[in-house]
Design a protein around this nucleic acid. Structure first.
Lengths: 161, 161
DNA sequence: GCGGTATAGTTTCATTTGTAACCATCTTGA
DNA sequence: TCAAGATGGTTACAAATGAAACTATACCGC
């Protein structure tokens, strides 16, 4: 009885203050940001975030294969496949087959895709700018370093387990 | 023709380097971390991340109502409802009805819930520690500040739109 | 060349998640 | 006191997501 009460007490003393728990804070921040952005893309162009990511990578790396997209975005290959299908359907992306390896798609933005991309970029930049405005120059640099280090550590996490 | 080529050129010059785009980096980091943690909780205790969050909040704030959980975690109320249902089903959480307002649930960890919680806490802490290990003391402080500022800015984002 | 294996990409199906409708209870104000 | 909201919570349905199976092509060793 007393020991049960003690155990319970100990649990509470050890209690994680969720609001200071890094993974939780990260997740909350990301959700807030992602939802804001998702709304933007969806309302303006009917694009989901995965769609937008594919678009953005193709803008930078034309003639990527689906596999290239997977590697670059770290999205699931099914997600990539679906986004590409949607974008091709909407004629924002052109798909052709690699002449050397018929398994590979060659994906690029169509003119329409480039146009959509050009119109989204300022919105994306604006969104990012509004976030960064809240930071000093020093903090921005720190953020950059920290994100890099954390991503590396997080990759270690998954590798180790 | 030339102008089309020029437009396309311009788009590429403006291209967002996704890998430096803050929302993207955040999302990628969070996904990596969340997936690692989700695996941990799921494999060890069959808990999803939402389940764990509810558990953690109840450890700190016993006798919360479902609405309290929504407020504290910023989870969707449906998600909370579902997690609570699962946890009650598994007898990790006790649910009773508030005597003053029969709409309200009063939720607390059962002894079993406390036990599970106690066993998870070190794992969660360890995970967090491994992430933070990659940072200097200075960087950790900076991270704290930056996360706070960014969350505030992100909340502004959604409020403004 | 030919069987075995690896890779690219899609489809299928089960699970998760979110939105909206819903029911029960409480509060307010005529 | 009772009608009209407001609030707490669940249910039902639709959309997004993920894991695994599948198809098609390519490579590798013999």
């Amino acid at each position: 009885m007393a020991s049960e009460a003690t155990a319970r007490q100990k649990a509470l003393e050890d209690a994680i203050e969720l609001e200071h728990f890094l993974p939780y804070r990260l997740s909350r921040l990301t959700n807030t940001v992602s939802n804001a952005i998702a709304e933007l893309y969806r309302d303006s162009f009917g694009l989901s975030i995965p769609d937008w990511r594919v678009l953005a990578v193709l803008a930078r790396f034309p003639d990527s294969s689906a596999q290239d997209l997977v590697t670059r975005t770290r999205m699931d290959k099914v997600a990539v496949s679906r986004s590409v299908a949607r974008l091709v359907e909407r004629e924002l992306v052109n798909r052709s087959i690699d002449s050397n390896d018929r398994r590979l798609s060659r994906l690029s933005l169509s003119d329409g895709g480039v146009e959509v991309y050009r119109r989204i970029v300022p919105m994306a930049r604006d969104c990012e700018a509004r976030l960064l405005e809240s930071l000093s120059a020093k903090q921005r640099q720190a953020l950059d370093d920290v994100l890099m280090a954390l991503q590396a550590a997080a990759d270690e996490l998954t590798a180790t387990s």
